[in-house]
Each structure stands twice: as C-alpha cells, then as structure tokens.
C-alpha cells in the first residue's frame, strides 16, 4: 500500500492511536492505583502520574508478594495450567490427526442406541438400582441391539460430525457441570486437589485442541507423510517424525492459548479449590472482604493475575486469530 499524506489520512492515523491509548488506559490506571498510598486512592486528580502527583510506594506489592497465600496461589496456578495444557495436547493431537487423515464412519443408529442405553442405565441407577447391575444390563441391551437391528440402518456419520461433536462441548455452559463435578470429585476425595482442577481444565480445552490441530494437519500436504511411508517409515513414525514436527509452531501456539485459558479459569477454581489448590482467579475472587474492598491490594492482585496471560498473548501473537476462532480463520 502507498502512503498518502492527506488530511483524512492524518486524522485517521491520529484516531487509530487514540483508540489504542484508550484500550491501554485501564492497565495504566491499575498500575497507578497499585503504587499510590491508600489515602490517595480516590483523591488523586487528573492522570495521576507517579512522582509527579504522588510519591509512589511499592508497599502493596511487597505485602502481596510476601503473603504465603499469594505465593501458593501462583504456584498452584502455574502447575495446573502447565500440566493441564500439556496433557490436553497429548490427548488431543493424536485424535486430531486421526480425524484429519483417516475416515471414520460410525452408524448413526449405533450412536443413538449407545446414548439411549447410557440414559437408561443412569436413570435406573438414580432410582436405586445397583449401578454395576444397571451398567451391565444397559451394555447387554446395547450389544444386542447393535448386532441385530443396528445392521439394518445404513445412515452413517462422518469425520465432520465427530469434529462438530467435539466442538459442541466447547459451547456447553460450564455452569451445568459444576455440581456434578463437585459431587463426583468429593466421591473420589479429589476436592481441593490440583488433580481435580487439572482434569476439569483438560476436559474443557480438549475440544479446542482437537478442532484447531485437526485444521493444522489438514493444511499439511499429505504427500510428505506418504513419502515418508514409502521410505519405510511406519504409520506412527510418519505421524511422529513428519506431521508433528511440521505442525510444531501451531502446537506451541495452541499450548500457549490453552495455558492462558487454564490460568483464567474461575468457576471451577472457586468450587474445587478452597485451600491447597486455590488458584489466582479464585484468590482474586475473594478480594471483597468483611470490611470492604481494599483497592490498593486489589489492583496489585489483578495485575499479578493479568501479567502471565498477557505475555502468552504476545508470544502466541501470530496464531491468536486462528486460536480464538478455533482455526476457522487464519490470521
């Protein structure tokens, strides 16, 4: 594009800068609040620059960063986010590869039968039938059905449908599963453990990883893998040495985006992590106290929470559009 220095152009350029400044302002203001002495929190006029309008203090940062609870939350958040996003990819990438390269064609009727039997077993169990018995009975019914009647219907599903099914999990409002997770986790004595939060985060990010990695594999020319196989590589070998290597940048970006999602997760963190597994967002959620909000600490906590995902956003910059649209648009 050519640069033309017309009046409109200058005005529009200035406008663009103004927009960006407005978007940066909240960050700046939080920093400013975090450096102010408490009595200045709401009495500072103008843009309130440190040094010019008030003597900045690091007191609040020190207090927060030396609190045992804050350090533990930082550690928890890091462990949970790293482990969960790593295992999301470990589980999701092969599935994505399979959906990109192979054809799956399950019979529609079998799936209906499966769902029906699952509901049947569940209903029976919830009305007091022993759950092992219910499960067994449902399984027998399912097998019988699939082997007899199931063969009579030819309508089949394709890879696209399976992908969409995964994607639909992402649209699910997580609040629906909070209570069941709470009860299940308490059955397995997993409440307030990092493991519980890791499992939940993997579950909610799996669809994301599958959809986005599948697109990456589809974009990869299939000839490269076929050439490797002609050279004697096994199917697994070509996946490992060719496909994975070539999609490594997308994988890294996906990892970072999932990391940010895990770091920001609040709803389950509030419910499943109270003490030992409390994460940063859950810690932040407690900022309104018995005796009101202390804005100077809140600003510090909010900034501490914001910094890591913001850095991730910078690192994953090239793939951010692709990531947030689940691979539908390539930026």
């Amino acid at each position: 594009m050519k640069m033309r220095l017309t009046a409109t152009h200058i005005i529009l350029t200035v406008l663009a800068f103004v927009v960006v400044l407005i978007w940066l302002l909240p960050f700046y203001w939080a920093v400013s609040v975090s450096l102010r002495p408490p009595s200045m929190t709401f009495t500072c006029k103008g843009l309130c620059f440190p040094y010019l309008q008030f003597p900045p203090t690091l007191e609040h940062w020190k207090t927060e960063l030396s609190s045992r609870e804050m350090l533990r939350a930082l550690l928890n958040s890091s462990i949970i986010a790293f482990t969960a996003s790593f295992f999301t990819l470990v589980l999701g990438t092969p599935a994505a590869y399979a959906l990109a390269r192979f054809r799956f064609s399950p019979r529609l009727v079998v799936i209906f039968a499966f769902v029906f039997c699952a509901i049947l077993a569940f209903t029976a169990a919830s009305f007091g039938v022993d759950w092992r018995l219910a499960l067994l009975a449902a399984f027998v019914i399912f097998l019988g059905f699939a082997m007899t009647l199931g063969n009579r219907f030819e309508k089949r599903l394709g890879n696209e449908d399976i992908t969409l099914w995964f994607l639909s999990q992402r649209f699910l409002p997580p609040i629906v599963t909070v209570v069941p997770f709470l009860l299940i986790m308490s059955q397995f004595k997993l409440i307030d453990t990092r493991l519980a939060l890791i499992l939940v985060n993997i579950t909610f990010n799996l669809p994301f990883a599958i959809v986005i990695m599948r697109q990456a594999f589809i974009d990869l020319p299939i000839e490269l893998e076929e050439a490797a196989m002609v050279d004697g590589a096994s199917f697994f070998g070509s996946f490992y040495r060719v496909a994975l290597r070539l999609t490594a940048p997308v994988m890294a970006a996906t990892l970072m985006i999932i990391l940010a999602f895990c770091w920001n997760e609040l709803l389950f963190a509030l419910n499943l992590g109270t003490l030992k597994a409390k994460t940063i967002p859950a810690l932040l959620a407690g900022s309104a106290s018995t005796r009101g909000i202390q804005f100077w600490f809140v600003a510090v906590r909010a900034l501490i929470a914001l910094i890591p995902p913001t850095i991730l956003a910078l690192l994953a910059q090239r793939y951010i559009v692709r990531g947030l649209t689940f691979g539908a648009v390539k930026g």
């Binding site: 302002l25 006029k45 103008g46 940010a260 609040l266 909010a302 900034l303 914001l306 910078l314």
Partner: peptide, 29 residues
C-alpha cells in the same frame, strides 16, 4: 490484543477503579 487473554475477574476489579464514583479514573480525570 492484550485484553483478550487478560484474566476476566482481574479485569472486573481493575475497572472498579475506573468507574468508582468518587475517585475513579473517569471522575478524577
């Protein structure tokens, strides 16, 4: 793109200091 990954709950608290009616950014500046 920075706001995209910002922890939403942190964003909410951050904006209280903007909107606060006695000394938030909008009132003060």
């Amino acid at each position: 793109t920075l706001p995209l990954f910002a922890t939403p709950i942190g964003v909410g608290y951050m904006f209280i200091t903007i909107f606060h009616e006695e000394g938030g950014f909008i009132r003060a500046s």
